[in-house]
Write a protein that binds this DNA or RNA. Structure first.
Lengths: 143, 143
DNA sequence: GTCATTTTCGTACTTTAGTATGAGTGTCCA
DNA sequence: TGGACACTCATACTAAAGTACGAAAATGAC
């Protein structure tokens, strides 16, 4: 990540420096020829850099959006003291499974599932599984 | 929506026109005084508009992201034959509400809520509310 | 007005969810 | 070795959730 970011920064600054140098050469020639008003040159470059700014910014923001669709906050899971088993069951709940189905999927009894769910609910501070889903999403601990 | 967009466009173009006018005045004075090189004036305005471009673009993209985190497929809702009331209840389910709470929120009895939910479930082809949520999300009919 | 659909509500019932309590097992660490 | 913790399971209970009828009023289109 850091290498990629550094490379980008170097590339962008390099490109900008190049642009400024080209700009200097061009403006000298144009000013010397005296055929065009200075205001139009300035306006042209202003618009050019305005567009460049928009373009670069749009690309960087788009990549950011694609890179992180929904990042899971594993630190939050630890903070809440949610164990592996409890989290597995939370995922199963988000898949729409009943307690019985969860038990069959994880090879434990329905009683066990209920125990885990009760503990999970108190850790999430909720009363129902639908509430648990909503809370888990806002805490970004499920996708 | 259209009014807001139009207003924004008018405002932005107005601001840009104003900037260009100010730019003309300033450049005239500076060029006349001959105390600064023309290149530096151009470079200054280029950087200025570069920054303005980034700023405007960032703001517009941020608003877009907040406004539509996940686009809702309203055509799918029609296709499935889900009525307004049923959809309202689906949203309430996604907020973690119990049938009782939904009834209180929509000013109807719990029986009515149950009726709607039964119809909704058959339209979504599910058996439980957690399944309904999962299905509604993969069909992109809730956020 | 008539017809289809939506919305509303009820009762009776079955199933699932969730709580409370207790207890056995295994693991890891001090 | 003793304690903290996670995982397991059971029983008994209460509370929601969901189904299956039936039925009345409101809405909107034809």
């Amino acid at each position: 990540m850091l290498n990629t970011t550094l490379k980008k920064i170097i590339l962008i600054f390099g490109a900008l420096t190049l642009c400024v140098l080209i700009l200097f050469r061009l403006s000298s020639y144009i000013v010397v020829s005296e055929s065009v008003a200075v205001e139009w040159i300035i306006a042209g470059f202003a618009i050019l850099f305005f567009v460049i700014g928009i373009f670069l910014n749009k690309r960087s923001l788009q990549k950011k959006q694609l890179a992180t669709p929904t990042e899971i906050d594993r630190k939050m899971i630890e903070t809440l003291g949610i164990s592996k088993r409890e989290y597995e069951i939370l995922v199963k709940i988000s898949e729409g499974c009943s307690n019985k189905e969860i038990g069959e999927a994880l090879f434990v009894s329905e009683s066990t599932v209920k125990s885990h769910i009760s503990n999970l609910f108190s850790k999430l501070d909720v009363k129902r599984r639908t509430q648990a889903l909503q809370r888990a999403k806002e805490l970004k601990i499920i996708g």
